[in-house]
Design a protein around this nucleic acid. Structure first.
Lengths: 188, 188
DNA sequence: TTAATTCTACCTATCAATAGGTAGTCATGA
DNA sequence: TCATGACTACCTATTGATAGGTAGAATTAA
């Protein structure tokens, strides 16, 4: 049952960060969500900094697994890329949520070094996955007019993150799809 | 001198929001920055909500003027677009700051309806400016392969915002340029 | 086998610090 | 003389965090 409470805390915290930012929720909120006393949260996560690092670590690991699975199972680069885009679309939910990484960056100054390290690792990982996909796309021809894979990767990540932000700002999930329409149009 | 203090408060608050988010600064911080007592800030802005709306309003108006100037003075659509990109690059500063709009969206749940309205107006304005630019770019040929101007506009805005976020996450302003390289490559 | 011990996962009660905000006073310049 | 713009001195609520304790499960030693 220990594990369950800890997981429940991480789940609640993740929802909170993604919808309200790191400075936008408190232990009191988590307490209410999970159903244990505020003070008891400190048993599982001594400080909010520790919680944030754990949160980002879990997120990075989950995304890493998902990416590995995508790279392993998909035939073409176009398929791989559209699956990654799908992950970001789902993370956006109904336009009320952001990728955890995006949510954290806005509160960067409040984060512990450990959490920032996790963010750095996360981005390195995603960029390298995307770079491989664009390289593959240039080779297998499933993504049109690829010239510089690393720059394409950087642009694609920025675009997906920005599209989540836009969708949220305009309170309209379809905005995400509009923003990505051009990129998707390059896929075979 | 009244105007100066009010402006100084808005300036300090804008810096604070852009680097730490809306929930990441307090009246105590502003008080220290501007050099008046915390309580005195309430004379100028009765509530933090009022301050945030004023902040966003000023930002929207400034950007609107800048866009009008760009649309009026620049010859080609390519020139216009690169000038707008330049605005977003400058807003990013050394990678430690975000466009006010981006910074606010992350803290959306904490904002007053008035501030959210301002954000909505701001985005409508930027999207319509960008749409006109892409239409012009298709007409004057200074932006290559433009098919759907509104989608291009949405994508460009998302890309610029996401690129700011990426640059900040990776603590490297050059990331912004890498993310925008593809778009800039389409300009004549 | 069982008694002593330690660990787990919470609890209540409280802390100092900080949040945003209010009331009433004082100085100053037009 | 009176509006402006600042001040001192508060307030209440909430923040993340701590101290100290407890019921019960797990471990260990005789």
């Amino acid at each position: 049952m220990t594990k369950d409470t800890k997981t429940a805390l991480l789940d609640a915290a993740e929802r909170a960060v993604r919808s309200r930012g790191f400075d936008g929720f408190s232990y009191a909120d988590l307490s209410e969500d999970v159903g244990i006393r505020k003070a008891s949260i400190h048993y599982h996560f001594a400080t909010k900094a520790e919680l944030s690092a754990a949160l980002m670590k879990r997120y990075r690991e989950a995304l890493q697994s998902a990416c590995e699975e995508i790279e392993r199972s998909s035939r073409t680069a176009a398929e791989q890329l559209s699956q990654i885009i799908e992950i970001y679309r789902l993370a956006m939910s109904e336009g009320d949520s952001l990728c955890l990484c995006v949510a954290f960056i806005g509160s960067r100054e409040s984060l512990s070094p450990a959490a920032i390290d996790e963010i750095t690792s996360f981005r390195k990982m995603v960029i390298s996955v995307l770079t491989r996909i664009f390289e593959k796309g240039r080779a297998d021809g499933s993504i049109s007019s690829v010239q510089d894979p690393p720059k394409e990767a950087q642009a694609a990540l920025s675009l997906m993150e920005g599209a989540q932000l836009s969708a949220r700002a305009q309170e309209e999930p379809a905005v995400f799809d509009n923003a990505l329409a051009l990129l998707l149009g390059r896929l075979t």
